[in-house]
């Protein structure tokens, strides 16, 4: 007797988040990027649809990076010393769909740029780089609360993805994102209960759940990847079962985690492999945006994704 495959039918679906707005939509982007929309677990094409492939966002800093590995510096050459050239190389040479701009230069320990300077920088960046934009703070809560509203306002109407909101610091960012028409990254420390709670807190302020992207916080291969994997899987199972408070796409900051580990630091080629494998594993647990650093790793992931989606 032929064995029959048991197929799940899920009542829920993941929301679709659009990043970027073209001229007709009030922005100035050359294209828009959509993520989410799945009606089944990752890559289970027989059980539902996965209308949007996972996207790679190239991580760019607003200053020349200070602690990047030599392998990364070499990959971009002199371009990495100027954020605009660096981003342009990502778009022209590496065909980036998305840029993730980290405002590291506003951190008190990395130059302490003012919110006004940051806003000016974002305006100039938007003028020169035309792909949809993700903007993240420097990670200093107090400073981010001043910098990110200024950046949000400077990018008003461009439908950026801005982050990150955390459980004890979300109100300022939510208010800005709401006023300026962006979407938000909600970050939780590998904790599904906090991820859910934060989404509720954000939506209580009037920003709809459809404008939230979850950063579940990930660890690189060998450094907690499986914890992130299982949290993402559990959130997806709940979302597909009908829990709207967890039905948001995921963003995973792969590059920063992969290049932090000693295996990547020891050998550049190993670093590329580490970043590639961390990203491809997370695609299987439902990652929608992979923020990556090395262009070769990004190319590997793109090739891998093409294979997964062949025939779809």
């Amino acid at each position: 007797m032929e064995t029959q495959l048991v197929l799940e039918k899920w009542p829920g679906s993941i929301s679709v988040v659009t990043i970027g707005a073209k001229t007709a939509e009030g922005g100035s982007r050359s294209q828009t990027v959509q993520i989410g929309g799945q009606t089944a677990l990752p890559l289970m094409f027989k059980e539902g649809v996965m209308p949007n492939r996972p996207k790679i966002a190239f991580e760019i800093w607003d200053i020349a990076p200070v602690d990047f590995e030599q392998e990364l510096m070499t990959a971009y050459g002199r371009a990495i010393n100027d954020p605009f050239t660096w981003a342009q190389v990502c778009v022209d040479e590496f065909k980036a769909d998305l840029i993730c701009l980290k405002m590291q230069g506003t951190h008190p320990d990395f130059g302490d740029r003012s919110p006004q300077e940051a806003a000016k920088f974002v305006s100039k960046f938007l003028n020169q780089i035309k792909v949809p934009l993700i903007i993240t703070g420097s990670g200093d809560n107090a400073k981010d609360n001043l910098v990110l509203p200024a950046c949000s306002e400077a990018a008003k109407g461009e439908r950026c993805l801005i982050g990150s909101a955390v459980q004890d610091n979300y109100k300022t960012l939510v208010a800005s994102v709401l006023a300026d028409g962006h979407s938000i990254i909600a970050e939780s420390p590998i904790d599904i209960n906090i991820a859910k709670q934060l989404n509720i807190l954000i939506s209580d302020m009037g920003l709809s759940l459809e404008r939230i992207v979850i950063d579940p916080t990930i660890g690189a291969l060998g450094y907690g990847l499986e914890y992130a994997y299982s949290i993402m899987e559990r959130a997806r199972l709940a979302a597909l079962s009908g829990d709207k408070t967890l039905a948001c796409p995921f963003i995973c900051f792969v590059g920063q985690e992969a290049w932090r580990v000693k295996e990547a630091k020891a050998d550049g080629r190993q670093g590329i492999a580490w970043e590639t494998l961390t990203a491809t594993s997370l695609i299987q647990s439902g990652a929608d945006i992979l923020v990556m650093r090395h262009p070769k790793a990004a190319e590997n992931v793109l090739w891998y994704t093409d294979g997964l989606f062949r025939g779809q």
């Binding site: 599904i192 209960n193 906090i194 859910k196 709670q197 509720i200 807190l201 939506s203 559990r234 959130a235 709940a238 009908g242 829990d243 709207k244 408070t245 967890l246």
Partner: peptide, 15 residues
């Protein structure tokens, strides 16, 4: 049957 969060009562009612 549902994932815990501090506002789980509200979360259930938001379904």
């Amino acid at each position: 049957k549902n994932i815990y969060c501090d506002s789980y009562l509200e979360a259930y009612r938001k379904r």
